[in-house]
């Protein structure tokens, strides 16, 4: 599924990377601990978090994530948006808490792991 379809279905607000919304979302990952995301997320994951610090862009770019969904209506810092534009990382915002965002992504068929050995 492409990111823009998710943006539409979950009513998300696009903050950066508007030209990258055709990124293919393969799976999802949710965590607020950057080290955990670096260690366990996989290429093509959409990452759900409430961290708005610019380091999130570095992490997303490092692991080739398809996009970042910020939750609880938390907007990224200006530095984060700038960095995301430079790195071409889409950042979108949801008003909902992470639990509900993930629940809805799951409903759309975006699952968490590619196969049982993926964790």
């Amino acid at each position: 599924m492409k990111l823009n379809e998710i943006v539409e279905k979950l009513n998300l607000e696009v903050m950066s990377g508007a030209n990258k919304l055709d990124n293919e979302v393969k799976r999802g990952y949710v965590s607020d601990l950057l080290s955990d995301v670096i260690a366990h997320s996989q290429e093509g994951d959409v990452w759900v978090t409430l961290q708005i610090h610019q380091n999130v862009v570095a992490v997303a770019s490092l692991n080739n994530l398809s996009g970042i969904v910020l939750v609880n209506g938390r907007y990224p810092e200006d530095e984060t948006i700038q960095k995301a534009e430079t790195e071409g990382i889409p950042i979108v915002v949801s008003k909902l808490p992470a639990f509900e965002v993930v629940g809805r992504l799951y409903n759309l068929g975006i699952l968490g792991v590619a196969d049982a050995g993926g964790v």
Binding site: Y29, F99, G103, Y106, L111, G112, V113
Partner: peptide
Amino acid sequence: LLYESCGELYN
């Protein structure tokens, strides 16, 4: 994972 856990319970 946290992702699956949220997804399963929500659903």
